[in-house]
């Protein structure tokens, strides 16, 4: 009995801490409604617990890229990442790209607008985050690099051609 209580206590105290778009987040791990369950995906936590619904879930199965966010600058599938794995990490979502002070859009976002690089727009946040990770890593990608980096992003409307132009225009030495 005593050990059970102890265990419960320590679970309640169990916290996962990470940052989202520069803001520190501290969440209890547990099974109560306000807590993060160990089975919760980052996509779930972002959308349902933190209310950041800009991250879209299409397949919830690691197949489509629409839930892509940045973890320490690298693109990850938030539907395949457990929230408890985010301990100490820095997460960036689509909501975190515009300048928080001025509201000015990230050049990549602006380029997506200028090239109408979307149709229904449901895949777009994921596309932008994947492209963002690529450009951080490789500021002057070739078209082939962009295609490779975005090859995990499903777009049923076929916005690919316009997305490609939008990303290339933002790349260094682009349009």
């Amino acid at each position: 009995m005593a050990t059970a209580i102890k265990k419960k206590k320590s679970l309640v105290k169990n916290l996962v801490r990470f940052s989202v778009n520069g803001t520190a987040v501290e969440l209890e791990i547990g099974t109560l409604p306000h807590q993060v369950e160990t089975a919760h995906t980052l996509a779930h936590t972002l959308r349902e617990t933190l209310g950041l619904v800009g991250t879209k879930v299409t397949c919830d199965n690691g197949a489509c890229g629409s839930c892509t966010v940045l973890m320490d600058g690298k693109a990850v599938l938030s539907c395949m990442t457990l929230t408890v794995e985010c301990q100490g990490r820095s997460i960036t979502t689509i909501e975190g790209l515009a300048d928080p002070e001025t509201g000015r859009l990230d050049p990549l976002q602006q380029s997506f607008i200028d090239h109408t690089a979307f149709q229904c727009g449901f895949c777009t946040p994921g596309m932008i985050m994947s492209a963002k990770a690529l450009l951080a890593d490789n500021p002057s990608p070739t078209e082939a690099d962009v295609k490779e980096a975005l090859s995990g992003n499903f777009c049923r409307c076929i916005s690919h051609y316009q997305v490609l132009r939008a990303v290339m225009a933002t790349a260094q030495g682009g349009e």
């Binding site: 800009g54 979502t93 790209l97």
Partner: peptide, 9 residues
């Protein structure tokens, strides 16, 4: 709706 689409709103 362009700004909303690219900002996830």
């Amino acid at each position: 709706d362009a700004v909303e689409v690219v900002t996830g709103t």
